[in-house]
């Protein structure tokens, strides 16, 4: 089905519940009544093109709107990624940690196995938090500053002073794969652990891990195929501009 700005927001959600993730990460409150996508976006000062690009992609996964997203304003993407981070750190990850803690209490879990999973996952949380803090404290402000300098909201000198040596390639040097360990955990639980009898709990844990892993894949795609090329493009534009001055 074609998704367009005049479609009712509630119909969009019914069409594909997954778009709720986009709604939440752009901080759009529910209670849409009969409002259209463009009404809701206007009310909450959301860039309607950006919203549509994301929900269309959610609805047709094989058609990633790379070019359009790169052409758009970087602040929207940064905002989206920032709220995604919050969602992982404050909700999805602690939930999975709690579920693994619960495994420890199950009587039929083999010795140490739950403890091992827990240690594995806690090590992952440490790495994950570090990765996200680096993006939040360094990369995102850098990209926003690039955008502000290009649009004239920050002068070039201030920008150069602040980022003497930093470029997006510095970020790539320690940009690690976030979903790998999530899928490893999924494999261990699914393929290599004797199944415990409290299957309902176990299944739910697997579903949540799978959801996080898939979500992280989307996140990586947005960072690697939009955010980084966009930053490179802005760096190039800024360098050309200073060369012309």
């Amino acid at each position: 089905m074609r998704i367009h700005a005049d479609m009712k927001m509630a119909d969009l959600v019914h069409l594909n519940f997954e778009v709720l993730a986009v709604v939440q990460r752009l901080q759009i409150p529910f209670g849409f009544k009969d409002k259209t996508i463009s009404d809701v976006c206007r009310e909450h000062s959301i860039n309607v093109d950006f919203f549509l690009q994301l929900v269309q992609w959610f609805n047709e996964r094989e058609n990633f709107p790379q070019e359009q997203l790169i052409q758009g304003d970087a602040q929207w993407l940064v905002r989206y990624l920032h709220h995604t981070h919050q969602c992982y750190l404050n909700y999805q990850i602690p939930r999975i940690e709690k579920e693994i803690e619960f495994l420890e209490q199950l009587p039929d879990m083999p010795d140490h196995s739950a403890r091992l999973m827990l240690e594995f996952f806690r090590e992952y949380i440490r790495e994950f938090t570090e990765h996200i803090e680096d993006e939040e404290n360094t990369t995102f402000p850098y990209i926003l500053a690039l955008g502000n300098t290009l649009s004239g909201n920050m002068d070039l000198e201030t920008f150069r002073k602040r980022y003497k040596t930093y470029t997006i390639d510095k970020y790539l040097e320690h940009h690690s794969d976030l979903e790998e360990k999530v899928f490893d955990l999924q494999s261990i639980l699914l393929r290599h652990l004797p199944p415990p009898s409290s299957n309902c709990h176990f299944t739910n844990l697997l579903l949540e891990i799978n959801r996080l892993g898939n979500d992280l894949k989307d996140h990586t795609l947005l960072e690697e195929n939009v955010l980084i090329p966009k930053a490179r493009q802005m760096e190039l534009e800024l360098n050309q501009r200073s060369a012309n001055q």
């Binding site: 083999p110 140490h112 196995s113 091992l116 999973m117 594995f120 090590e123 992952y124 790998e180 360990k181 899928f183 490893d184 955990l185 494999s187 261990i188 393929r191 290599h192 652990l193």
Partner: peptide, 15 residues
Amino acid sequence: LDIKSVSGLTVYAIL
């Protein structure tokens, strides 16, 4: 095994 990370492989090896 469908496990990529060293720590994941370590968990498998212990299990």
